[in-house]
Design a protein around this nucleic acid. Structure first.
Lengths: 220, 220
DNA sequence: ACTTGTTTCAAACGTAGGTTTGTTTTAGAT
DNA sequence: ATCTAAAACAAACCTACGTTTGAAACAAGT
């Protein structure tokens, strides 16, 4: 019927709905209705609603890791040390690559990360950790080298402060964008996400480089 | 039956379940079962599940604003200028006051904020903004005075980067705490939240004080 | 002791969710 | 033209949800 196949239509519709409503709040009837396919199509092609979510997850996370690692390989010579801002810039570019395929991809991806940290979702969390943690370790090692010196647990928490800024901002980007325009002047739409990602860089960079209070008391 | 009344038992059970599962994922049957009250009790005492959520919301947000403003009044002399770290310290203390009444209060509160920023929840969002924004403006003005000089929209986004760190970390505190203990050594439980809130202060402070890139190009 | 208003309870209601079924349609291979 | 496997479809299924009902238990005032 449409120019794209049924599974592809389903994924497109699901991503749009997941981005604006979240996973639990989106029903398969909404998805199939929007995709203009039969109600049973999701179960036929993806097994279940959960299967659809996992398919979308893998579709985004794998390219993200690829892009991030290839940027690290190409930008980092054998002895060159990247700055913290450069590393974060790479991360943001990798996110933008993910987004380039679908306007809603970043919101969906960030909602997926939020979901993975919920208490009930050990399954999804362990799946993501087991499968993608090693692909991010390289990046994290560089990131830590450029951060202020700190204990392992301190870095763990700062990493999640950073992750929280990203997930919150990008998951709810549509709402935040509306709130901003309601308060201030209007801006062009096309480059909005890029702009916000770049606004994050100096903030996150400063957060990682800040000296923690604990160091005043420990170590020497 | 229990030492506390039925509505209070319901609220306690609901807060614990909301904290670990979220609102949509928690059913009234789970709540009433845990509270050991009849299934119909929520509708009888709170009208609906939504009414229960709103009751819990108001129960926490009002004391938070009170505490924050009273700390500002008592700590700030007529001409004394608070440092950024002092302001954030006040915010964290206000959060801890909210938590002191109930161990799960902070997670519930943060989940509520996340909910308010979702696209579907204009009702809740406008309610919170209309009712509590003015009570926080005083704090925000001081906060901005101590931040790096920046445009209105830049400050808007940094505020939400900060909010994202807080909501993500505290909503999923239980999960993060487990992950941390799985990776590193165990620590005592009692003061964990306090510790993390204080770890946030220098990070958030540095983020607000960081010079934004945009300033390099605009204004003089 | 009787009435009255409030609270509790077991049971059922109605709806909306994800999923399954059995049939029909489609399209490529023989 | 016929056969066959994949895909699409309408309809039903079953479960779980929030909510409602009406009777029973309770408490307090008179």
């Amino acid at each position: 019927m449409s120019s794209k196949g049924t599974p592809s239509s389903i994924v497109d519709a699901a991503e749009a709905l997941f981005a604006e409503q979240g996973f639990a709040e989106t029903t398969v009837r909404q998805i199939t209705s929007r995709a203009k396919v039969n109600l049973a199509a999701i179960n036929y092609h993806f097994g279940s609603k959960k299967g659809l979510i996992q398919a979308i997850a893998e579709k985004f996370i794998t390219p993200l890791c690829n892009e991030l690692n290839s940027q690290m390989d190409s930008s980092l010579g054998p002895d060159s040390k990247p700055t913290l801002d450069e590393l974060l810039e790479m991360l943001m570019r990798a996110l933008l690559i993910v987004r380039s395929e679908n306007r809603n991809a970043l919101s969906v991806f960030m909602r997926l990360l939020e979901l993975a940290y919920m208490a009930n979702q050990e399954e999804l969390r362990d799946f993501l950790i087991g499968r993608y943690k090693s692909r991010l370790d390289h990046f994290l090692i560089y990131l830590r080298q450029d951060s202020a010196p700190m204990e392992d647990d301190e870095f763990f928490w700062r990493l999640h402060f950073l992750l929280g800024s990203m997930t919150f901002t990008l998951s709810n980007f549509h709402t935040l964008h509306s709130l901003e325009k309601r308060q201030f002047s209007g801006e062009q739409e096309g480059t909005e996400v890029e702009l916000i990602l770049h606004r994050m860089i100096p903030v996150l960079s400063a957060g990682l480089q800040a000296r923690g209070e604990k160091l005043y008391f420990s170590k020497i």
